[in-house]
Each structure stands twice: as C-alpha cells, then as structure tokens.
Amino acid sequence: MSELGNKKIMSINIKKFMDKKGIDRNKLVDDLNLKYTTVSDWINGKTYPRIDKIEMLAKYFGVEKADLVEQTPDNIIPVTKTVKIPLLGEIACGDPILAEENIEEYIDEPVNYLPSGTCFYLRAKGNSMKPTIPNGAKVLIRQQPDVEDNEIAAVLMTDSNEATLKRIKRADGTMFLMPDNPEYSPVLVNKDNPARILGKVIRMVIDF
C-alpha cells in the first residue's frame, strides 16, 4: 500500500494530466463520453476506475497506465497552508456580499488548489442545475463581476437578495440565466427582474 491511498493517487494524477492537457472536467467527460458523476468521483478520489477505464484514460492523456496508478515524486504536493473560505447562507441586503451576516460557516481549503482572487462557497439549492450541480453541493465561486457565455455563475437576484447558480447566455444585449435541467425554464434578466453576477463557478464538493 502506498503512502497515499490508491483512489487519492489516481485523483492527483488525473488532475495533473488534465492541467498538462489544459482541459476541464466537462471537456474530459465529453471527450471520453462518460457520465459526469463517474469522472467527478475519480477526480475527487471517491471511487477508483476499472482497468478498462484506466486504459482509456492513459490512451487519452498519452501516458502509461502506471503514470495514472502510481505515486511519483511530482504528484506529492505538500499542503503548506490552508485558508478559511466562507460558505454563504442567506444573502443580506446590500454590499458587500462577504459581510459577516451572510456567512454560515468557514471551510478550510489548501491554498495549492485555490484560484487567484477572492473565493467563497455557496450551497446549491434545488434541482435546476442537475446533473451538473446536484442539490446540496457546496460550490466554490471566484468573485468576479462577469463570466463568459456558457459558463456557470453565481447570480444575485437583486429584488429578492437570493443567490442562484445558473449558466449564462446572452442574445441581442439580453442576459438569460439558463438551467442545465431541461425541466426548468430560463430566467430573463431585465429591469423588472434585475440581477448581477457575483462570480464564476470553479468546482463543487459533495459531502453527502
């Protein structure tokens, strides 16, 4: 048994080769025609791929199977520091978004795996973003005032002070908040239904 568990080693190696290839989780899922939850479980170290899937991953990344399953010196990343990332609960009126009254708890995060800038967590509520983001998932957000089309953003509905997670689409100067679940309808942002982008979704954590 290696110093790190087998699932953890696989997780580290997959993320390493994703970084080298310059792809994200959605791209890996699409290219390999696999279920998002299956790939997420590998990346999060929750499950271990079957041998045929290891062979598929190795061929995709252009590496040997051993490069995925074995612990090597360059995949041992020391965690030198952690920071407390706030998990926002109900959003209080007004700015700033990270005011103490908005914070439900803090989550310790290794700085190695955080993007630059200010980050916070939101808990997904409801099923409008399934299967991409299930209800109850903790979603890491990088605070920024805008995102690219088709990216998932945390959006504050300013009339209700309710934060929601939706995919951003724009057409003819109008912004739409798009659910990934086809059972839900898009939300039109306009003067009668104002909203502002709080940040970009980076990743999620499922702890149930």
Rank of each mutant, 00 (worst) to 15 (best):
A66M: 06
G126M: 03
P73H: 05
L156V: 09
I9Q: 08
G45S: 12
D31Q: 13
L32K: 10
P96E: 10
A163W: 07
G117P: 04
V187G: 00
N75V: 14
P186G: 03
E151M: 14
A153T: 10
Y184Q: 05
E55P: 00
T72G: 04
D149W: 01
K130P: 00
I12F: 15
Q143S: 14
M157V: 06
E104T: 00
V69D: 00
L114C: 11
F61L: 03
K46H: 11
K16L: 14
A137V: 01
I23Y: 11
R167C: 09
I12W: 12
K8P: 00
D95V: 04
A92I: 00
E148P: 01
I141Y: 08
N6A: 14
A66R: 09
G5F: 08
L68T: 01
R50N: 08
T164W: 06
A137Q: 09
I91E: 07
Y36G: 02
M178G: 00
F208R: 10
K81A: 12
I197S: 06
V189N: 01
T38V: 15
V147T: 01
N190L: 10
E3W: 11
L122T: 10
D192K: 13
I76F: 03
L165R: 05
A137K: 08
V205H: 11
I133N: 06
P145W: 05
E105M: 10
I197G: 04
A124H: 04
G199I: 10
E3P: 00
K65Q: 07
L198W: 07
I133S: 06
D24V: 12
E55D: 10
T132N: 08
R123S: 11
L140C: 09
M18N: 13
D108M: 12
I54K: 01
V189E: 02
K35T: 12
E162C: 08
A171S: 11
T82D: 07
A171F: 05
G62K: 02
V187M: 13
D41W: 00
K59N: 13
V83M: 06
L177Q: 03
G117M: 13
V187Y: 03
V147Y: 02
V201A: 15
Q143I: 12
M157Q: 13
K84D: 14
D31C: 07
D74I: 09
